[in-house]
């Protein structure tokens, strides 16, 4: 059973941040779906619901998603459904059920850097930045590589462009955590391949992405998929061995590439 000594709904992000960092065991709570499964002892729980961060908007060349937006809103948002081949909406569709997605938030999903996250993989394949109160606005890829530091994730920016994208995942039961997930996007000749649930958090297959961007031979997609599978590291957990994940990386990347090439 988790413990919360104090529950606070700050009126400003600054206040939220100050409370968060004022004690070691103060924490921001997202959708609280995962919180209830642990036995965290939280001194002050910081709730972001009063900060107006529940929105998805298309403004100034960016799609902006507030941290308090739920995954269900991400799934059904016309803005997201109609951008980047709907890759972001697609990525969250199989996460448990709508009752769950109506509660869990984008901010918590991204900030927690869950290895199994489908959303992070999709975001990583796009030109995504996140805005943190303290660390400021940084590329998602940078954030994922940084060591954990307390902060408040405010919003996510995705550069609005004509990226085509595809999300691929492999699960046994539909509502299970993914064995592996892949997102691939393309803007003109520039490609990005992201692979998640390795089981570690999503990463960009840099070499494969570069090789593709330099020279695309549609007849030999497996070649690029193999590069991705070779350059990334994979681990073993209960859902699959490292070897299987590596093999599946080739398959899913190839399929994602094909889908992107088809959706002109």
């Amino acid at each position: 059973m988790f413990i919360i000594n104090e529950f606070i709904q700050p009126q400003t992000i600054e206040e939220a941040y100050n409370i968060l960092v004022s004690r070691r065991n103060n924490a921001v709570i997202g959708g609280s779906a995962f919180l209830r499964m642990g036995s965290k002892k939280i001194n002050t729980a910081v709730d972001l619901s009063k900060l107006g961060l529940d929105y998805i908007k298309d403004e100034d060349g960016y799609i902006e998603i507030g941290a308090y937006t739920t995954l269900r809103e991400v799934e059904t948002s016309p803005i997201l459904v109609n951008s980047f081949s709907g890759v972001i909406s697609n990525s969250v569709k199989n996460i448990i059920g709508i009752q769950f997605r109506n509660i869990v938030t984008v901010g918590a999903s991204v900030f927690s850097k869950y290895g199994f996250s489908d959303l992070i993989t999709a975001l990583l394949a796009l030109d995504t930045e996140i805005e943190l109160y303290k660390a400021g606005r940084i590329p998602l890829d940078d954030f994922l590589k940084r060591p954990f530091e307390k902060d408040v994730l405010i919003r996510i920016f995705i550069k609005k462009n004509q990226r085509r994208a595809s999300f691929q995942d492999l699960r046994n039961s539909v509502s299970d955590y993914p064995i592996l997930n892949v997102a691939v996007s393309r803007l003109d000749n520039q490609w990005t391949i992201a692979v998640g649930a390795r089981p570690r958090v999503a990463a960009i297959a840099i070499k494969a992405s570069e090789a593709l961007s330099e020279h695309l031979g549609p007849e030999n997609l497996a070649y690029y998929a193999d590069i991705a599978a070779e350059e990334l590291t994979f681990g073993t957990n209960e859902r699959g061995t490292a070897e299987y994940r590596q093999a599946m990386c080739k398959v899913l990347v190839k399929r994602a590439l094909m889908e992107v090439l088809e959706c002109k």
Partner: peptide
């Protein structure tokens, strides 16, 4: 036993 809840032990959903 590590398959000790419905997230680890998967009974079929209606999509399966």
């Amino acid at each position: 036993m590590t398959t000790n809840n419905f997230m680890q032990y998967k009974i079929p959903t209606r999509k399966d």
